[in-house]
């Protein structure tokens, strides 16, 4: 079991020694049962740090912010930031290293093993509780969670309320760390691409219908993009100003930039946006599932990315986010790469 005290002691040590600038971790939210991201700057604040089944967030998103801030500063503090990572999150670091967005010395990685279970899915839990409100959720001794409501405590199996991403997780122990808490448990994942299997059996018409209905719901709040540690581009086709403007950018340049999509949340534009995002995440998405969790209208966005992850695996034997020394999938060519799908 990962003990809060151990993580806190490590955090305290890091802050006291001045080895890290600050630590990105989890704290208990105002609702009393869910975790929130927290930024610990002082050793006396380390007792805020928690670890549990509501630590959904991929905190690498904030490592991206830190990098953005740093490039703006004249004399940036070059010490690393400490960051708590789950297995999936650690794979995001691998991608950022692979793409040279950050350097290894920029982060001090405090890994936590998800051991037997990962995080819960709030919507699954709400359905299970049927109106009762959760007050506390903890890891159970086996593949289960202990949920406390106003009516008492219940044991719920992981298979029922765990997030889909965790049910299909292939890296429940962080793949890159400076320090690791928890055990390197073994877990078998019978269906690593289970969530896309059903839709793969549908005809293309039915798939089109499914996605049209799903993406019609999109309100284009861009939470999926905003929460994603891989969506770090300064320029995005989805924005009205689709490129970085400096005082030297000429009016001509601005006028000639193509407006790729309209702001209207209509099916054509929504599909375009989500396709662009999915394609740009091919071979990069590490399946932290944050896009799907953040979506206020519950679009199964993870499925899109999972499908591309599967393609990368089947076509190129490429596992995303395990080895930062290997070139990124979409920026390398090998002689043995298959070409039979090019027509």
């Amino acid at each position: 079991m990962v003990k809060h005290e151990d993580v806190r002691a490590e955090a305290k040590k890091l802050l006291e020694s001045g080895k890290v600038k600050y630590i990105i971790a989890y704290e208990l939210g105002a609702d009393g049962w869910k975790a929130n991201p927290v930024f610990i700057k002082k050793p006396e604040d380390v007792d805020k740090i928690i670890w549990g089944p509501t630590c959904f967030h991929n905190l690498i998103r904030f490592v991206v912010d830190e990098k953005r801030r740093k490039v703006q500063q004249k004399n940036p503090d070059t010490r690393p930031v400490g960051v708590m990572v789950k297995g999936c999150d650690s794979r995001a670091i691998v991608i950022l290293l692979q793409e040279k967005f950050i350097e290894r010395k920029d982060v001090h990685i405090i890994g936590v093993s998800c051991e037997k279970t990962g995080v819960i899915d709030e919507r699954k839990l709400a359905n299970k509780l049927k109106g009762r409100k959760a007050k506390n959720v903890e890891f159970g001794p086996d593949e289960n969670f202990v949920v406390t409501t106003e009516e008492g405590t219940v044991d719920l199996p992981a298979s029922e309320i765990m997030a889909d991403r965790c049910l299909e997780c292939i890296a429940h122990v962080p793949v890159i760390t400076d320090v690791l808490f928890g055990e390197k448990t073994k877990r078998t994942v019978p269906h690593p691409f289970g969530s896309v299997e059903k839709i793969e059996t549908l005809s293309s018409e039915d798939r089109w219908k499914f996605w049209s209905e799903q993406l019609e719901k999109c309100v284009r709040c861009y939470a999926c993009r905003s929460v994603c540690p891989m969506c770090y581009c300064d320029e995005c086709v989805a924005d009205t100003i689709t490129f970085a403007v400096s005082p030297d950018t000429t009016a001509e340049e601005k006028a000639q930039k193509i407006k790729w999509l309209d702001k209207s949340p209509v099916i054509s534009e929504n599909i375009f946006y989500h396709m662009v995002r999915a394609i740009h995440l091919a071979g990069r998405c590490i399946d932290c599932g944050e896009c799907e969790r953040a979506c206020p209208v519950n679009i199964p966005l993870r499925m899109l990315n999972k499908k591309l992850e599967k393609e990368a695996k089947l076509l190129f034997g490429y596992d995303v986010g395990f080895d930062s020394e290997k070139p990124a999938l979409i920026s390398c060519f090998r002689d043995e790469d298959p070409e039979d799908f090019i027509r």
Binding site: N36, P37, V38, F39, R61, F62, D65, V219, R220, C221, Y222, A223, R225, S226, V227, A294, P296
Partner: peptide, 16 residues
């Protein structure tokens, strides 16, 4: 600056 550290600049709080 402190309060906005965790903000990810999405539109949820305002659109909804």
């Amino acid at each position: 600056d402190d309060e906005s550290m965790s903000c990810i600049r999405c539109g949820i709080c305002t659109y909804l």
